[in-house]
């Protein structure tokens, strides 16, 4: 799961399955809170789900600045490199 396309695919799957988001609404520049209508409780769920899928521990601070789908992909990509 090293390349960005795979990460995006995984993220899309989570958003569709867990949060009732339409796959066609998901693009790299889509904002999680505005266009995808996630709230702060959803964000906590998303982090937990991402931890399960990647097997990496995600620090809340790393997710504080995340606003768009691309930000999530970058954060996960960074984690996988470590």
């Amino acid at each position: 799961m090293q390349n960005r396309d795979q990460i995006l695919e995984m993220l899309t799957q989570i958003l569709v399955d867990e949060f009732e988001i339409e796959a066609e609404d998901i693009s790299l520049d889509a904002s999680l809170y505005e266009s995808l209508d996630l709230d702060s409780i959803d964000a906590v769920d998303l982090v937990i789900k991402l931890q399960q899928m990647t097997g990496k521990k995600i620090q809340p601070e790393q997710f504080k600045t995340v606003r768009t789908v691309e930000d999530v992909v970058n954060a996960i990509e960074g984690l996988m490199k470590d």
Binding site: D17, E18, F19, E20, I41, D42, D45
Partner: peptide
């Protein structure tokens, strides 16, 4: 179903 979905 997920908690997030049921909340919706």
């Amino acid at each position: 179903s997920s908690d997030a979905k049921m909340a919706r």
